[in-house]
Design a protein around this nucleic acid. Structure first.
Lengths: 221, 221
DNA sequence: GGCGATTTTTAGATTCGCCTAAATTGTCTT
DNA sequence: AAGACAATTTAGGCGAATCTAAAAATCGCC
């Protein structure tokens, strides 16, 4: 059970994300685009990863991640998200500043380090973007996330993540007093433009545009 | 001012340590031995590092680190030692467990991360082994370390580091109540076998063997 | 001061991760 | 159903970092 290289871990992570966010069959170009590399490089790496048993693939027909591959990907994701919590909670980074650093830290090899870090952080269940943190066995025990704009009137949900993490959007959310963890009740949906009337934390009522609602990821509450 | 690769950073660090622990001229074999690599690989890397201006060298005549190289080496050392403090102080690692992990963490690229970490740790001046932590400018402001067995009677010193970090030695120190930071007064030195009578923290008196005294690094107090 | 031993460098190969260019396979449109 | 076009793979090459084997330079001993 030899370790994967940094590059291999990054490919595997990309394949995991693509396959869990869409169909099972992940295609070469999608991986290349996600990793900002060339399809030819992806083909090369796919061969190596499949020799190592973390993905299975048939030429010209895309990639499937294996159970072993999924476990390894989730281990990297666990490390990434725990480090993000550390950076935000302990080192006072803002949640939109931590990705690049966590992208490096996720490759540090030491399972003892990660279990100690987990303990130090108080066993967090979500990272600062609202994404769930897999446990040491790679199990994600959390509700599926949904996009607010896809829900029905009267839904009661909790904000767990954002799709857009640009400053303009973050500032807007600050201004209306909405943050990760906020309870949201959907009061009405305007058919004309898709804007949504909501109540935040049982206190504040306001209307948000469809554009905003498209970028709010929530779980049933 | 392009970043050095991980391997380049490791070579530079080794060269720095060798040149500050001995003569200026560092020879190829010494570097190879320290990095557990082959002299041929070292020759190759030396060429590259000197092209980048971090060392200067004349063929067959060893290596000198430049000012720029020293600065870069000290930056890596600063990161290494701060991470060691983090691992011991925050994650409850024992000081003899942290080296391999810090060896990985020292290559993480983000000066903001390091300044935040420094702040989080309360601007420590020494790592868990007693080695001084360079500041952000690469300046080490701390007294030179000495070996206890080389001092005279009546010296008053502070324990800052150990040469032997094996478990047997650490257990012994625990047992006699000596730890990094302990104040030590030298009461007498037995000529016959070089053992040393000391007083620890103005409380406890005992005699330690020369062998033990050889492994205690102290600074004037 | 010369010669054998040691140190250092060079030469040539390998693996990894990437690239470009070209060939191949698959899909879609008409 | 046959091209045209898109996706994918192969071929060949490159730089980084390593190695072994061999050549070159230096050191040190007599």
């Amino acid at each position: 059970m030899i370790d994967l290289s940094f590059a291999e871990e990054n490919y595997l992570k990309a394949i995991y994300h693509l396959s869990s966010a869409g169909q099972n069959q992940v295609n070469t170009n999608a991986i290349a685009e996600r990793l900002e590399t060339k399809p030819a490089s992806v083909s090369d790496m796919i061969r190596k990863l499949s020799e190592k048993g973390v993905i299975s693939y048939v030429k010209y027909q895309g990639v499937n991640i294996t159970e072993d591959g999924k476990k390894k990907a989730l281990w990297v994701i666990r490390k990434h998200r725990l480090w993000e919590v550390f950076l935000v909670e302990k080192l006072n980074f803002h949640w939109d500043e931590v990705h690049d650093i966590a992208e490096q830290l996720e490759h540090i090899r030491s399972s003892l380090l990660i279990s100690r870090l987990d303990e130090f952080l108080g066993y967090p269940k979500f990272d600062p973007h609202g994404d769930p943190i897999p446990d040491a066995e790679g199990i994600i025990s959390s509700k599926p996330r949904m996009i607010l704009s896809g829900l029905n009137v009267k839904s009661k949900v909790k904000l767990v993540s954002l799709k857009d993490t640009g400053n303009a959007f973050l500032n807007y959310l600050d201004r209306i007093g909405m943050k990760i963890g906020s309870r949201i009740r959907i009061l009405d949906i305007i058919e004309f433009d898709g804007s949504v009337e909501i109540e935040i934390d049982n206190r504040k009522r306001l209307t948000i545009s469809k554009r905003v609602a498209d970028n709010l990821l929530v779980v049933a509450d």
